[in-house]
């Protein structure tokens, strides 16, 4: 486990809405440079954890502690964005600078340069003047990642970034996030309902299943016995061509 000072710590946290708990006794932390994958099926509370990380809800019990108020770059689900609005990719990326702008929200040269750098990092510099709504799902996702990067974040938080994508686009997005984590040292939290998405990228994993959860370093969490106990079916991680892949069922099926 990374022994650096954590950016974000969940201490025995219970989360819920209107006083009704959705998740209980959740403890995990994210250190600088880590890649945390939060994985669980729909309704398992992933979005609730995300909302707590973003400070949009308060825990019913326990404590969420952020060290030094990290700047968070947030990449929402593409489906939550109203693509009828005719804004260009550059205008979308400039929105990432919003917390750093004055009361009128007007970007200056420095903000435009930061947005341009973010577009380059996300591999969509050539799309700056195109309308967001005209882009493919993969291109839109890259623009949203560029918007989060334009905030010059300490922590990049992505909510189901590969939803509705074909295999190639899915792979490209995961590789982009992995590169930002490994090469640029950016701390990442990626929320997904598919374990294979983070299998080759995450350094730590939080698995949610029913009212149980499993948290730890990737190697530790991806243990066959632990996965079997969590999912109640035989699940193991195999290596194919130097990359991890998930095998469900098999040995005692």
């Amino acid at each position: 486990m990374n022994h650096e000072r954590p950016l974000l710590v969940f201490h025995d946290v219970t989360l819920g809405y209107g006083g009704v708990p959705v998740l209980r006794h959740l403890s995990f932390h994210v250190c600088a440079g880590e890649f945390l994958g939060i994985v669980g099926p729909n309704g398992s509370g992933k979005t609730t954890i995300l909302r707590a990380i973003l400070g949009l809800i308060r825990p019913l019990a326990g404590r969420v502690q952020a060290t030094g108020l990290p700047v968070v770059g947030y990449v929402p689900q593409r489906e939550h964005i109203d693509s009828v609005v005719p804004v260009t990719a550059m205008e979308v990326v400039l929105m990432g600078r919003a917390p750093r702008l004055g009361p009128f929200g007007r970007p200056d040269r420095h903000d435009r340069e930061a947005a341009q750098r973010a577009l380059v990092q996300a591999g969509v510099a050539g799309l700056a003047d195109h309308l967001f709504r005209d882009l493919s799902g993969g291109q839109q996702q890259r623009v949203l990642i560029a918007r989060a990067l334009a905030a010059e974040p300490d922590l990049l938080v992505l909510d189901e970034p590969t939803n509705g994508m074909d295999l190639a686009s899915e792979h490209a997005i995961v590789e982009l996030v992995r590169t930002l984590n490994r090469d640029k040292g950016l701390t990442v939290i990626l929320v997904t309902h598919l374990l294979p998405i983070v299998l080759n990228a995450a350094t730590t994993i939080l698995l949610l299943e029913g009212d149980r959860h499993l948290y730890g370093e990737a190697e530790e969490v991806l243990d066959e016995g632990k996965l079997r106990e969590l999912y109640q079916v035989p699940v193991r991680v195999a290596e194919v061509g130097g990359r991890r892949t998930l095998v469900v069922g098999g040995r005692d099926d």
């Binding site: 973003l54 949009l56 939550h80 929105m95 919003a98």
Partner: peptide
């Protein structure tokens, strides 16, 4: 109008 969720998040 474009993305209220992210606006809240930031």
């Amino acid at each position: 109008v474009f993305d209220p969720e992210t606006a809240r998040a930031v």
